[in-house]
Design a protein around this nucleic acid. Structure first.
Lengths: 194, 194
DNA sequence: CGATCTTGGTTCAAGTTTGAAACAAACCTA
DNA sequence: TAGGTTTGTTTCAAACTTGAACCAAGATCG
C-alpha cells in the first residue's frame, strides 16, 4: 500500500495538537508537582477514587478508567500509599484482587489541591476556547476514545461488550463510570477527574 | 477567589481529551517502539531535523520547536547519536552552541518508519474525524499554543518578539519553522513532524 | 578591560514509565 | 478433581524524564 500521507490540513492539525498537549501537560505537571509534589497521573488517581461512592476502586478498574497499564498503576499507588493518601485492601470476593482506597488524608489533600489544578486547566485550555469549541473538543476526543474501544476486541465496533462489564463488588458501586454528577465541594475531584 | 470549577460540559470535554491523548500517545509510542525501537519524541526529533534545508538544527531551536526541555533533548540526542542516526557538531559562530545533524542513516531510517507512523496517527485520529473536525482540532490547539506563547514573556500576548527570532546561522535556514511544504517522499517527515 | 549577567548545553541524582516475566487465585473442562 | 488456561497484580531491569546544579562562552556596562 502506498501510504496515505497526511494532507496539509491534517499536518497542521497534528502539529498544533502535539505542541498543544505537550505544553498543556507540562504546565499541569509542573503546577501539581510544585503545589502538591505529585504528577498529573497521581492526582487523577486520587480524583477518580474520590468520585466513587466508597472512595475505593479495584486496581484493574482504576487502570482502565485512567487508560494506563496495570504496571504503571501499581507503581503509582505504591507511592501514594507510602505517602498515606491511599490504602490497599484485598478484595474479599476475589482473592486475586486488590482495591485502592482513598484515605481521609488523601481526600483532604485532594480538596486542597483541586482548586489550583482546575485553575491551571482553565488557564491553559478552557479560558482559550469558546463554548462551541469545548463541545467540539469533547466530540472529537470522544470519537477517538471510542475508536480505541472498538479496537481491542475482535473488531466489535461500538458494541456493549457485556461480559466486560464486571462491576466487581469490590470496587465502589460505580458501573462503567458514567457521568460523575458531583459538582459541589466534592466535585473538585470530578472537575479535574480523568 | 472561590475557584471556578469546570462546568459539566468542560468536565466531559476534559475527560474525553485526557483519555484520548493517553490512548493515542500510547498507541503511537508502542507502534514506534516496536517497529523502530524508539519513542515518539525521538521520531519527532528525526522528523524535525529532516525538514530543515541542511537537516541540522541547533539544540535550543530544536527543543523549542518540540516544546521540550533542553535537558530532555540532550538525553534523547545522545541516544540517537549512539545509534548513529544523528551527529553532533559544534556551532562555528557561537562556540557555546551545538547543532544536531541528521545522518544519512538517520534519514534512511526515518523514511522507512514514517509510513507506519503516519498510518498509526491516521488510524487513531484522522480516520475518525470529519474534515470539519480536523479544522476544529487545529484551531483549538493553535489557540492553546498561542496562549502559552504569550505567557512566558511579560504578558506580551501575540507579539512578534523579534529579539527571540535568533535564526542563528548554525541551524538550517529554517526560520521559525513555518509550514513544511514537504509532501513527497521526504514529506514523510513533514507528515508526522511535531 | 574586568566584573557581572545572560545564554547554550550538559550532568547528576531521584523519580517515573515500560514491557516482559513471575505469581497466584479463579475458571474451565474432560 | 486434576490439569490447563485465563485473569489480577506485582516485580524487575532497562530506558526515559525531571529539575536543579554546573560550566563555558557571549553580551553588558562602568
Amino acid at each position: 500500500m502506498t501510504t496515505r500521507w497526511l494532507t496539509p490540513e491534517e499536518q497542521r492539525a497534528w502539529r498544533a495538537y502535539v505542541a498543544g498537549y505537550l505544553l498543556l501537560e507540562d504546565a499541569i505537571d509542573r503546577q501539581l508537582q510544585q503545589e502538591a509534589g505529585m504528577p498529573h497521573l497521581y492526582y487523577s488517581i486520587l480524583a477518580n477514587l474520590s468520585e466513587t461512592p466508597e472512595r475505593r476502586l479495584r486496581m484493574t478498574d482504576l487502570a482502565e478508567q485512567l487508560k494506563i497499564t496495570r504496571s504503571r498503576l501499581t507503581y503509582a499507588v505504591a507511592r501514594l500509599e507510602k505517602d498515606g493518601l491511599v490504602r490497599r485492601e484485598e478484595c474479599r470476593w476475589d482473592k486475586r484482587g486488590t482495591v485502592a482506597v482513598l484515605t481521609d488524608e488523601g481526600h483532604a489533600i485532594l480538596e486542597n489541591i483541586a482548586p489550583g489544578h482546575v485553575e491551571t486547566v482553565r488557564a491553559g485550555l478552557f479560558d482559550r476556547l469558546t463554548p462551541e469549541q469545548v463541545g467540539q473538543l469533547e466530540q472529537i476526543f470522544t470519537q477517538v476514545v471510542q475508536g480505541f474501544q472498538g479496537d481491542g476486541d475482535g473488531e466489535a465496533g461500538p458494541e456493549e461488550l457485556p461480559w466486560r462489564r464486571r462491576s466487581s463488588p469490590c470496587s465502589g458501586t460505580s458501573g462503567t463510570s458514567g457521568a460523575p454528577e458531583t459538582t459541589g465541594t466534592t466535585g473538585t475531584s470530578g472537575a479535574s477527574g480523568a
